[in-house]
């Protein structure tokens, strides 16, 4: 048996040849449709941008997307209105997100490889347990977890937010990678074994490189979910110096009283920028995956 890996000659994004004898619909129609849907998708973002330059009092009453009165001061005021300047919260969130991504990629890929490609006693049981951990509503775990982390002495540190990511506690990512790894041909492992690779080298040299799209997906989702995570940081962090972006943004509002809406939406928009940036950067790896898996 022989296995070679070559780059696919045609870039995957290149338009495919239409089958002959069939009439092609005009291409602009598709763009009109895609753009139309896109506007609905974009609306909340546009609304947020618009709200971020409106005076707090007219955020909800001035319904047009183009503000009647502009108040760019929301950004400057919002940046400095809280206990710490806003860049502190951005850095805190970046630290947590970066470490969480590294932790998730490492620990979940290890576990996923075991479940997807190795045979060992208890595999099915452990896999079922892993799925089971995704099925219990988090609200009833809040108090026991809080007590547990309090006992360990981790309150007001980042450990309760980070350590679980290094210990593959999120079944979602494991299951995701398992499905990607299982769809790779078994011959890969066999061939690697014949070449004298043990499971670790096979994992590192053969499977890992082929799972780049799955890793990119994991990284993107981890970034977004950790970046937006509100309740866990709320629970475990008490020192405002340690606050993450969502905690900070929420401090502009009181749902039962007065709120600094303009400042809140300005900082919401600031905090969205890294996520959007990361998504745009990360989705490139979704493309690169195929270029390296032209398996023949």
């Amino acid at each position: 048996m022989s296995l070679t890996l070559t780059r696919v000659s045609t870039p995957p994004d290149a338009p495919q040849q239409a089958p002959s004898g069939r009439k092609r619909r005009p291409r602009y129609l598709r763009h009109v449709l895609l753009t139309g849907v896109g506007v609905i998708m974009m609306y909340p973002l546009l609304w947020m941008v618009s709200a971020s330059v409106k005076p707090s009092n007219s955020v909800f009453t001035d319904e047009g997307l183009w503000p009647a009165v502009f108040d760019f001061g929301n950004y400057a005021r919002g940046w400095t209105a809280l206990a710490e300047p806003f860049e502190i919260y951005l850095v805190n969130s970046l630290v947590i997100v970066t470490l969480s991504i590294i932790g998730n990629l490492l620990s979940c890929s290890l576990a996923a490889y075991a479940f997807a490609r190795l045979r060992f006693t208890g595999r099915r049981l452990f896999f079922a347990m892993m799925l089971g951990t995704m099925m219990l509503p988090g609200h009833v775990l809040v108090v026991p977890q809080y007590v547990m982390f309090d006992k360990i002495g981790w309150l007001n540190t980042y450990y309760p937010l980070l350590v679980p990511h290094f210990l593959a506690t999120n079944g979602f990512y494991i299951f995701l990678m398992v499905q990607f790894m299982r769809s790779l041909p078994q011959e890969l492992d066999d061939a690697a074994r014949i070449d004298g690779c043990g499971p670790f080298r096979t994992f590192w040299k053969v499977i890992m490189p082929l799972c780049v799209p799955a890793f990119a997906t994991t990284a993107i989702f981890t970034f977004i979910s950790v970046w937006n995570e509100f309740f866990s940081p709320l629970l475990y962090l008490t020192d405002p110096q340690l606050y993450t972006v969502p905690l900070a943004v929420r401090q502009f509002m009181d749902s039962e009283g007065q709120s600094m809406w303009g400042e809140m939406f300005a900082m919401s928009f600031v905090s969205l920028a890294p996520v959007i940036g990361f998504f745009i950067a990360g989705q490139k790896y979704l493309v690169r995956g195929i270029a390296t898996t032209g398996l023949r």
Binding site: A192, P209, T292
Partner: peptide, 20 residues
């Protein structure tokens, strides 16, 4: 067999470096 070394390893290394 030829292990898939050429392209992907670059990716992985770069990815790790970037993350680090």
């Amino acid at each position: 067999m030829n292990a898939p070394h050429d392209g992907p390893r670059l990716d992985r290394r770069r990815l790790l470096g970037l993350a680090g």
